[in-house]
Write a protein that binds this DNA or RNA. Structure first.
Lengths: 341, 341
DNA sequence: CCCCCGTGCTAAATGGGTTCAGCAGGGCAT
DNA sequence: ATGCCCTGCTGAACCCATTTAGCACGGGGG
């Protein structure tokens, strides 16, 4: 294939200078170039299939139409790949491209990744984490914009976070609406047991939302089970314990879908049916939520919407505030009215 | 923060010309610059924290230390995100960066993505698909390298694919080693029913491997069930049908883990235990394989290794051949010797 | 007739680096 | 003393675009 077409080729073909061609192709206002010049340049560019060299342009203008996406584990684990998907979509809509780097949370790799992104003159950087947390960010040039995605940082205040408080409330409302008043357990969190621990900013908000809705209805949990690792095996064991020791449990709020998956397995083992004997509501809307039988009703982490939002904020002037993205309720079949015993 | 340090700053500080500084920093051999000049330049660069501007260098050298990753749905779905993870890791090891684009298989978006990557002067492009298939690739400049990842293309012959044939054989060997000789079902594929259909190159090889191992042992499937959509719901229904109609079934080869998940649900519903009454082996090593109880033994898709390999091939001279990556057997607890009835 | 202004366009500087041709100056052979 | 080579370095072109200052020309006013 032939060499790439450059602006010089277009100018030559149009019989004008590169300056004229450049101004016309960029649609600069207030140039006094004639109508005819416009036509000749546009025709030449179209005919030759001219596309500007982004790097060369960036050298001059400091805009590369490229943004950096630095994450600990987001891009490459299934848990939060929606973040990157949303970011890619929004970037494409804005005719930008995304340079992706994963650091696994290692500060040295993070620093190196940022330096490498700056070497490539990115217009801005999105910092994403899997578990919303305070993220260390090295110094950036003033001209480099930054947006925190599912993360917070003291210096870079523009953050995109899920609206966990409202989401937490929604989960409780689902059970209450179905008629549950007592016999509700919380699986995965016990404020008492975790007083000294801090999971993440968003988990704290989720729990606060859950408790506020519960309070509002004058209700309280019959049981709370602290679980540090939110995986199916742990959920299974804890649910089994709860259900055995406390036969009055009729509903469960699980802190994530993998715990809920474990709870399903425990219920099955005890011969309890979901949702007939046990209603379950959960958070995240993981892949497995749709695979479970019956389908798991869950309050979704809006990863794609968050990724989109982050890019949109980055490309507009970042506004230095927290941007909360609504968590949609995904209703499936895991909630029913309590059986009257 | 101050303006970026340029080569001119380094040269000035070292009291030498930019040319000298450039040659020294790039470690050019056969320049006759003095030992002392080397030391002065290196010291100046280190002291100022100089990093070359990749875009500017690329303009001259046509090397940007950046590669493009174009995929249909790989990056952003949990199914194959390992591909991107491996690619990112290998790129980082080679001090390269990755520009990611998703096209959802839309040829227009694909063409646009490739053009945009070329605008950014990438050194090469990896084309990845979720389901290994023949992928259309528009014209590329001769200088742009291409590697197909989980895909094949007539013009660009360098491909990275999972070694499905050997993987298929391995799945059968697992059952045979456990003592299974008859009552084995195949869930998800029936050559008879799918004569006219073509899923993908790799599925064909997987099936060929399965059949070759079976033949070698003089065995054959007691039952084959064609399923077009390999999802849990479909697996559940098909497995339920098979197990009801054919009580002699003692083992199942599932074409993927989601089908196996459905088979687990069907077995549970029929009061059969895995692996006591029914052994199950499967493919992919999805997230759910580890979550199931008992753990699902499965032949893994080596996504990360494939992503790595693709980058390595791209950065060396691509060799115009298919590179097969071994599929590791992940042994868990879903296979046991057949109960003697 | 001269000056001024508006119109339509171009030359040249710029961004940050790489690379090639070649320039000074010292040492050596003739 | 002349010519030549070797050493150690620099000037300038080049990559591809953007941007600013200003040139040439024609027309109108004084």
């Amino acid at each position: 294939m032939a060499k790439r077409v450059t602006l010089a080729d277009v100018a030559r073909k149009a019989g004008l200078s590169m300056s004229a061609a450049s101004m016309i192709l960029n649609g600069r206002p207030d140039t006094r170039l004639s109508q005819e010049a416009h036509e000749r340049v546009n025709a030449a560019a179209a005919e030759l299939g001219y596309r500007p060299n982004v790097a060369a342009r960036g050298l001059r203008t400091d805009k590369t139409l490229t943004i950096g996406f630095v994450s600990d584990l987001v891009a490459t684990t299934r848990f939060a790949s929606g973040l990157i998907k949303g970011a890619l979509e929004a970037a494409e809509d804005a005719r930008h491209f995304v340079l992706v780097a994963e650091t696994e949370g290692d500060p040295r790799r993070e620093e190196e990744a940022i330096a490498a992104l700056l070497d490539r003159q990115v217009d801005g950087i999105i910092f994403a984490t899997m578990r919303a947390r305070e993220l260390f960010v090295p110094d950036l040039p003033d001209s480099t914009r930054a947006v925190m995605l599912n993360a917070i940082n003291a210096r870079h205040r523009t953050s995109v976070l899920p609206d966990e408080y409202t989401g937490g409330r929604a989960a409780v409302e689902l059970l209450v609406d179905a008629g549950h008043r007592d016999g509700i357990a919380l699986l995965g969190q016990s404020d008492e047991a975790e007083r000294e621990l801090f999971r993440s900013e968003t988990v704290a908000r989720r729990v606060a939302g859950i408790r506020s809705a519960l309070d509002e209805h004058g209700l309280s949990f019959a049981r709370e089970e602290s679980i540090w690792l939110w995986e199916p095996q742990e959920g299974y064991e804890a649910a089994l314990r709860i259900l055995r020791e406390d036969p009055g449990i009729r509903a469960m709020v699980c802190m994530n879908d993998r715990l809920a998956f474990g709870a399903y397995q425990a219920a099955a083992e005890l011969g309890m049916s979901v949702p007939g004997d046990l209603s379950i509501v959960s958070f995240d809307n993981d892949e497995i939520a749709a695979y479970l039988r019956p389908g798991l009703t869950t309050v979704a982490l809006p990863h794609e919407a968050m990724g989109r939002r982050a890019v949109e904020l980055l490309l507009r002037e970042p506004d230095h505030g927290q941007s909360l993205v609504a968590m949609p309720v995904v209703e499936r079949e895991s909630i029913a009215p309590p059986a009257h015993s």
